[in-house]
């Protein structure tokens, strides 16, 4: 790979502009206990850090592994350099979502539509049987849901992709 041609020097600023990222010295602590590092392809956190630091835009855009993270945050706990790898993974996902509409998780559309990623509070019979009260969900409160949607519409990724939200 030609770094002169194939990298963007300040990409890290666009992705994860914290004082922490550059401290990564590739000790591999993040790797050895990572659940998603068992995947195929494996999630290799330190490699993501390296890609961000080097500014390998295309490689990063095409990298699916950040989405395999289970969010256990153990890397965050163990990282001796306090790179905050989980935050970095979220930051990479955010950057991907902002730059590639196909990366935008469908779940946010669900949330936009009914407040949750799935239908909540519709299992009234079961809830009754268990002796549970009726849930006051936002799905059933059009006024609040509208407020919620209007709020989200002011946030970057929702507004940039408003067509997904029936907007």
């Amino acid at each position: 790979m030609d770094l002169q041609q194939g990298s963007i020097k300040d990409l890290w600023k666009a992705i994860y502009n914290t004082g922490d990222l550059h401290h990564c010295f590739n000790c591999s602590t993040c790797l050895s206990g990572c659940p998603a590092s068992h995947g195929d392809p494996p999630l290799l956190v330190r490699n993501l850090a390296r890609k961000v630091i080097l500014g390998l835009e295309e490689e990063l855009l095409n990298d699916d592994t950040p989405w395999a993270c289970v969010s256990c945050s153990k890397c965050e706990e163990m990282c001796p350099m306090d790179v905050k790898p989980f935050e970095m993974i979220l930051a990479i996902r955010q950057w991907q979502s902002a730059n590639d509409e196909t990366r935008v998780p469908p779940s946010i559309v669900e949330i936009y539509k009914r407040g949750y990623t799935q239908a909540v509070g519709v299992n009234t019979d079961l809830r009754d049987k268990l002796g549970l009260p009726e849930l006051k969900t936002i799905t059933n409160n059009p006024e609040q849901l509208q407020f919620f949607r209007e709020m989200l519409m002011k946030t970057p990724v929702v507004s940039a992709n408003d067509y997904m939200f029936g907007g």
Binding site: W67, L90, R93, Q94, S97, A98, V104, P105, S107, I108, I111, T117, L152, K154, T155, P156, V157, V158
Partner: peptide, 10 residues
Amino acid sequence: GAFPSTDIDS
């Protein structure tokens, strides 16, 4: 996997 993966604001 939802908003924390898209932007900080949302």
